[in-house]
Design a protein around this nucleic acid. Structure first.
Length: 470
DNA sequence: TATCTGTTGAA
DNA sequence: TCAACAGAT
């Protein structure tokens, strides 16, 4: 076999637009081949949700078609975990005469360790390995305080990040079609499988309709969001009964869309508070991704404020189960948890409310909530999910002060004043008045709805004293 | 991106 | 009676 190939290894970057690894591979005059490696056991260990795996599945179908138009075949492999991957890549490189491997970096420790092992193996066999950063707006370790340390406060981080973003990151266009692969150039390898051989979970049609696959769908959402809703984002983003948020997080988390594409889209908007606040959301995401790189303990179930390890979390399986299944007796919490279970997604305001309720009023370890979210979210992303939970639990670097505890009923009255959201997810309460629906009294509570599992006032005081001790 | 409590002063 | 506010957590 004389012809050489360029190899693109797709992971969390299932798109052809603004994909630096794909773009650079296609700059070569050699034919390009693409691979995707399914690792079901690893997914299970990382608590990847069924809805997210199904979303990957559906997006891979789209990606395969889009790559075919570029004369690139997408080959599938399946292995239990990451340990076998360096050998697999080496075999592919040798048997398919690979010149260079192109990837977009993954940031968590398991993945960077896996990639470090792959790099070593590539060096052994003399194959070049090119890594790009598509998940970040700004390069790792590029945002630093005057003394050279990573930022631990969001506002300071975002000020410097915005200064850097005055020169926005460049976007990579879809590459031109590559040179075709000669027939029989890539023979079947061990571990290689048909797409249909990979065991993907099944989820409801309703969820699939709610989260359509493909980068074109993502781009349509982004464009439509930037045409109108972004201008009302300042107020509408906090109302869970409205579609006031971008709902792009699943596409960002799986790399169907890049953060750079989102940032560029905002530059074409008429500048307003709404645009600025949405940019800030992109910067929160950026902040948490940099935190993941700069403080690797985040990937290892450790809090950023190590002294919070001393907090005596309550081990109450029944209350945890009540929270997980939306049976706490606090309507806004239950409605939110049922949105998570039926949609695979939860509105951001509600994520803060339910996380605060679990970690403060119930005083249950934030890691149990973090895990439940990962197991059920279509947009589950280690850095954003961990960052959000540590923010709510007051264990993170720029998290909410421990004494600033959301009262879920007050939040409900403020952000769902007519109970529209609660009524939708808790039909058993739909008949209650706007006043009663936020916390039904014993008198008007229906039989099939539980009484509150915790007294909010007592729960709050209990959390205050538990945190005050450390 | 907070809530609770107590105080003040207008009605 | 209650809005507005300060101070504490």
């Amino acid at each position: 076999m004389s012809a050489q190939h360029e190899l693109v290894w797709f992971r969390n970057d299932l798109r052809t637009i603004d994909n630096p690894a794909l773009y650079h591979a296609c700059q070569s005059t050699q034919p390009v081949i693409a691979i995707y490696i399914a690792t079901p056991q690893q997914w299970h260990q990382h608590d990847d949700a069924a809805v997210k795996l199904d979303f990957w599945h559906r997006n891979l179908v789209q990606l395969e078609k889009e790559l075919a138009e570029l004369n690139i075949e997408l080959h599938f492999f399946q292995h239990d975990n990451y340990q076998q991957i360096p050998d697999l890549i080496a075999t592919i490189c040798q048997q398919w005469a690979v010149n260079q491997v192109h990837v977009n970096a993954e940031l968590a420790v398991n993945e960077s360790q896996r990639d470090a092992n792959v790099i070593e193996r590539c060096q052994d066999i003399g194959v070049a390995y090119q890594e790009h950063h598509d998940q970040l707006l700004l390069p790792p370790a590029s945002i630093r305080t005057k003394t050279g340390t990573p930022y631990k406060v969001f506002t300071a981080f975002s000020t410097q990040a915005r200064q850097r973003l005055a020169t926005p990151p460049s976007l990579y266009p879809v590459p031109n079609p590559c040179k075709k692969i000669s027939d029989n150039a890539t023979k079947r390898l061990s571990g290689q499988c048909q797409f249909a051989d990979i065991h993907w979970p099944t989820v409801s049609k309703k969820i699939q309709t709610f989260w359509p696959a493909g980068q074109q769908q993502a781009l349509t959402r982004l464009t439509e969001f930037c045409q109108q809703p972004i201008q009302h984002y300042k107020t509408d983003r906090d109302t869970p009964s409205l579609a006031g948020t971008s709902r792009l997080s699943p596409y960002l988390a799986s790399g169907i869309l890049s953060a750079a594409q989102c940032w560029h889209a905002t530059l074409h908007c008429e500048m307003s508070d709404g645009v600025h606040i949405w940019q800030n959301e992109l910067l929160w995401r950026e902040f948490y991704k940099h935190t993941l790189i700069d403080f690797p303990q985040v990937s290892k179930h450790k809090p950023l404020k190590l002294q919070t390890e001393q907090i005596e979390w309550r081990h109450d399986k029944e209350q945890l189960a009540a929270w997980q299944n939306g049976k706490t007796g606090i309507p806004i919490v239950d409605a939110a948890m049922r949105q998570l279970l039926t949609r695979g997604w939860m509105h951001n305001r509600l994520r803060m409310i339910v996380a605060m309720f679990l970690t403060k009023h119930l005083l249950i370890d934030w890691r149990l909530g973090e895990r439940w979210f990962m197991q059920h979210l279509i947009d589950g992303d280690l850095s954003a999910n961990n960052g959000g939970w540590q923010w709510c639990a007051s264990t993170g670097s720029d998290s909410v002060p421990y004494f600033r505890i959301f009262n879920p009923v007050t939040q409900s009255q403020r952000f769902d004043p007519k109970g529209a959201f609660i009524r939708h997810y808790l039909p058993e309460l739909a008949h209650l008045s706007d006043k009663d629906i936020h916390l039904p009294s014993a008198k008007n509570r229906p039989e099939n709805y539980p009484s509150p599992i915790v007294d909010l006032k007592r729960g709050r005081l209990r959390a205050l004293s538990a945190f005050k001790g450390v």
